[in-house]
């Protein structure tokens, strides 16, 4: 497996940064064009799955240990709920972004960006986790 699929390995290496960069672009440009946390998470996960398919699951697990990914998965959801509670502490309702900044419009913008980030993190981590548990099954 080490030297097989030479072209695939080189192409993957070339494409990886662009896929991940595109995922981040979709994540943070989602306010202005099509995109958002869900899509970005899935694209990020897909890029990772590509890496795992070409370089093998062991290499992929070295890059992203399953335990760490599971923690990140939780962090995304916590970020979402945390933004909700933060609004609550600042005197608004749960998930009320108007109070996050001095200006309600800025508060909304900030809240939406943070929440989308939480969505993206959780979706990406969940996709990677699901794939790794499927692929990890093969080895034994």
């Amino acid at each position: 497996m080490v030297q097989r699929h030479f072209i695939l390995r080189v192409t993957t290496k070339l494409l990886m940064p662009f896929i991940l960069l595109f995922a981040l672009y979709v994540q943070f440009h989602g306010d202005f064009g099509p995109g958002g946390g869900f899509q970005a998470g899935v694209i990020f996960g897909a890029g990772f799955v590509l890496y795992a398919l070409i370089y093998g699951v062991e290499a992929a697990e070295k890059v992203a240990p399953p335990g760490v990914i599971r923690v990140i998965m939780t962090l995304g959801l916590l970020l979402f709920v945390g933004v909700g509670y933060f609004g609550l502490f600042l005197g608004g309702a749960f998930l009320d972004y108007n109070v996050l900044a001095h200006d309600p419009v800025h508060g909304q913008h900030l809240g939406i960006t943070l929440v989308e980030l939480g969505v993206g993190i959780t979706v990406a981590a969940t996709m990677i986790t699901i794939f790794l548990s499927f692929a990890g099954r093969n080895r034994t």
Binding site: G30, D31, F32, G33, P34, G35, G36, G37, Y97, P104, V105, H106, Q108, H109, G111, I112, V115, E116, V119
Partner: peptide, 14 residues
């Protein structure tokens, strides 16, 4: 209200 042109995003998150 949100200053975000993509309505889908603002409805989704807000």
């Amino acid at each position: 209200a949100t200053g975000i042109p993509n309505i889908v995003t603002s409805v989704l998150a807000s």
